[in-house]
Design a protein around this nucleic acid. Structure first.
Length: 135
DNA sequence: GCCAACGTTGGC
DNA sequence: GCCAACGTTGGC
């Protein structure tokens, strides 16, 4: 799930504990949120940031319910709970260079703010976060 | 701040 | 249903 850190950062989620993921106004992203279940793990991605990348882990705390910030019905949000910071920040630039992640939606649908992560990609990302960056 | 990519809107 | 215009997103 992507958020602009200037608006709502991973640190903000850490402070708040749990937050409503409001403001999604894209049908595809909305449909993915609808499928989320409590306990589903989430990669918290900082978009429109320098650098952009994955900051940490969160999880779904509440399934889809109406987004009160929407001016039309039909838009929904889920609640997301802080889980943990990754051992290190994974920049988009670094992610791009990992062959195991080449097929990630993130690169092909760069504007989609909520997207599923394949189990294999998930594993590779967590392993990467624990590993030292290869210079 | 710029610009490319892409989603949405609206005229036909 | 097509497509041009337009608005937004997101990387840099």
């Amino acid at each position: 799930m992507k958020s602009e850190p200037d608006v709502f950062s991973f640190d903000d989620l850490k402070k708040k504990g749990t937050a409503g993921w409001d403001g999604v106004r894209n049908y595809q992203a909305r449909n993915f949120m609808r499928e989320m279940r409590v306990g589903d793990k989430v990669l918290f991605y900082h978009s429109n940031a320098a650098p952009a990348g994955i900051a940490g882990l969160a999880e779904v705390a509440r399934t889809a319910y109406p987004d009160p910030t929407a001016d039309a019905p039909g838009w929904i949000q889920v609640d997301v709970r802080f889980v943990e910071r990754l051992p290190r920040f994974l920049s988009l630039d670094e992610l791009r260079g990992v062959p195991a992640l080449a097929q990630m939606r993130l690169f092909r649908q760069s504007r989609l703010s909520v997207q599923p992560v394949d189990a294999a990609h998930w594993k590779a990302i967590l392993a990467l976060a624990k590993a030292k960056r290869i210079p």
